[in-house]
């Protein structure tokens, strides 16, 4: 195999190696299923409970994606406002830092009081947790316009909105798409937290229920399902990033 084919194969080889090591350790050390099920146990549970796993995965994916889209739209809007005006930046930044420091798990009960248990708190928790990196990145992209570029355009009579439209916003795009990769994985964290506390569907709920029934292989099957969803969405974001802002990754082009 050539070098590049090794690199393409590497993630699969590493994953397989990890699972083999895991399986072997569990067998050799005779670890009880309740402590750590072997991959084969998880596989059996996955096949047996395929229908609930599938249904709850769809629910979790749904709440995550809706929360994520809200975070992207809201984060872009606020990021633009912050990057646009120094006074909005100065006023909002400390508040946002404070807000971001609040553990989102503490917000879920409040959301439940407002909206009841179920889909809405999960969507909103995903939104809240994914929002911050997008705001910060969009604002950074706007705030780091080269001063020379700004001078060249301002000397021509360009107004703030011209500079934003021609330079700031295109410049912020790689930052936005980069932050979307972080934000999508955070959104999963948010919706699963909320589902574990206050929902009757979703992977978080399913794992919580399985745990209370001491069905440890199903708990682990839920974790694997989450990991798979996370990888798929991350890959989708990475692909989107490449498509939309290829110019910022010029090393990978011709």
């Amino acid at each position: 195999m050539t070098d590049s084919r090794w690199i393409t194969a590497a993630p699969w080889l590493w994953a397989i190696g990890l699972f083999v090591l895991w399986e072997g350790s569990v067998q050799v050390l005779d670890i009880p299923v309740i402590i750590l099920p072997a991959p084969s146990d998880i596989w059996v549970a996955t096949v047996k409970y395929w229908s609930p796993i599938w249904k709850n995965s769809v629910q979790t994916l749904y709440t995550t994606v809706v929360g994520f889209i809200m975070a992207v739209v809201g984060g872009m809007a606020l990021g633009l406002a912050i990057g646009w005006s120094r006074s909005i930046y100065a006023g909002l930044y400390p508040i946002m830092i404070g807000f971001n420091s609040i553990p989102k798990v503490a917000v879920v009960p409040i959301l439940v009081i407002w909206f009841g248990i179920g889909t809405i708190p999960a969507v909103l928790t995903a939104f809240l947790i994914a929002f911050f990196p997008i705001v910060v990145n969009v604002a950074t992209g706007l705030a780091t316009i080269e001063p020379e570029m700004e001078d060249v355009l301002r000397a021509l009579g360009a107004k703030k909105h011209d500079i934003m439209l021609k330079v700031g916003i295109p410049r912020a795009m790689p930052y936005l798409f980069g932050s979307m990769k972080v934000a999508i994985t955070l959104a999963f964290v948010g919706s699963v937290i909320s589902e574990s506390i206050a929902a009757n569907s979703g992977l978080g709920y399913m794992m919580q229920l399985a745990q209370s029934q001491f069905n440890v292989p199903l708990v682990w099957a839920g974790l694997v399902a989450l990991a798979v969803l996370g990888i798929i969405m991350y890959a989708l974001m990475a692909w989107l990033e490449m498509r939309m802002t290829g110019w910022a990754h010029r090393g990978n082009r011709s």
Partner: peptide, 18 residues
Amino acid sequence: GPVSVAGMAFQNPSMLPW
């Protein structure tokens, strides 16, 4: 205010990469 009869160039070419 900005004169707009001027063109400017600096040491940093600041071309937009996109």
